[in-house]
Design a binder for these strands. Structure first.
Lengths: 227, 227
DNA sequence: GATGTGAATATGTCTGCACATAATAACCGA
DNA sequence: TCGGTTATTATGTGCAGACATATTCACATC
């Protein structure tokens, strides 16, 4: 007997996988399914809503619910702090601040943050190590306006300090691959040109830019997820 | 006045960002918040549940709702078909099957799919092009048992054929970076050692392995998301 | 002090109902 | 035929109440 919304979800998914309902098909209305399964419409709604969020179904008012024609797999990635990422692998985490100075950011960074060209920002470069071997090279630009007090970034990583002290409202993340420059290779103790996994993150607090960071991960780094 | 669950969600998020409620704090119960905001408990529940799914809150029965201590940002990535990805950028898509043969997969692939070492699988190598320039090199191993009829993979890409014809229940995805091998560089028309963005995907239909694919993307490829 | 038991409690979910909203479909007049 | 208005309809969301379930906490027992 089908009772909970998870059972409904599973059954609907089964029918889709089994091609009872094929991509593009309109499936029965919530009301009809509620009747069939002997549950309230809200329960069916919950099940179908979850499937729509996962990209399996497409729903439009009045038009009904259809099996997604182009199943864009929607995967959720967990993006932890570098420290937790490393500790989670059972390795010892350490951290070194390599440089800290006011400077004017490269045009690409200023543009991403929506700041004027000549603006001065705090530029940090630091290295995250796992079992004393370089794991991630962090290159960060900070908007000094968001720093009421200026912490000692030798002691606490910028990321953790920001999380604990600066509110932020939105951010975007981009993932890519890049060959290590000579500098990066030297700092990460890798052959020049090694393929690095790059995470670029930019965050704002409302309209105020906060920070723009590039995390370069050594080869062997993987992000995993399940669908 | 706060009315909908999205308003509740926004207000709770505001309080967290503003550090009214700090990481680790237990926030008021659903009932208390429902009273404060003048809505039903179900509405508060919906708002808090969404925030918990995003990783902002942690909820446990009886223990209550706490602001996540280690804010693992949970980002959702859309992983479209390569064809749609390219067409979505306004480029012309084309596709070439480079090779198709039965062979026994490398141990890593067999292990990932849970197949015995010597098993024969269908091995496809193909190239996806954007505006006639190589964009993605696809290296795929297919379990022949899942192919009732064998389509002509010259005409339709394996990915699209599978989506339309083979049900699947679970899959996992891993993202990484790798230097192009000599072969890959030649096929993608890149200098050897170029940093490729690699998407490895493995899918099963219940317990039956379906396919294991490696998509190597040329430099410049990015996956984006917003948090 | 350690351990097991039971009451208390916050969240998880379901029901049945209502109204809001958006998008389609039907209609009607020029 | 076209264009605009109106009715219809499936989903989106809300409410109040109820019960289920997982923990925690306090208490009793060894």
């Amino acid at each position: 007997m089908l009772a909970g919304w998870e059972d409904i979800r599973a059954e609907v998914l089964r029918r889709i996988r089994a091609h009872d309902w094929r991509p593009g098909d309109t499936i029965p209305t919530e009301e009809a399914l509620a009747l069939e399964f002997g549950v309230a419409r809200a329960t069916v709604n919950r099940a179908l809503r979850e499937l729509a969020e996962e990209g399996v179904l497409e729903r439009r008012r009045k038009a009904g619910t259809r099996v997604a024609l182009h199943p864009v797999r929607r995967a959720t990635l967990d993006i932890p702090l570098t420290r937790l990422e490393i500790e989670g692998r059972g390795q010892a985490y350490s951290y070194r601040l390599l440089s800290e100075e006011m400077a004017s950011p490269p045009p690409a960074v200023a543009a991403r943050l929506g700041l004027p060209q000549g603006a001065q920002m705090l530029h940090l470069v630091c290295l995250h190590l796992a079992d004393d071997r370089p794991a991630v090279l962090e290159d960060r630009w900070l908007n000094p306006e968001t720093l009421k007090v200026q912490p000692d970034f030798h002691l606490v990583s910028a990321n953790e300090w920001l999380l604990a002290n600066v509110p932020y409202t939105t951010g975007d993340i981009s993932l890519s691959a890049a060959n290590a420059t000579a500098d990066e290779a030297r700092l990460l103790d890798l052959p020049p040109g090694s393929a690095l996994f790059i995470i670029d993150r930019t965050t704002w607090d409302r309209d105020h830019p906060v920070t723009c960071v590039r995390l370069a991960h050594v080869p062997g780094f993987r992000m995993r997820t399940t669908v």
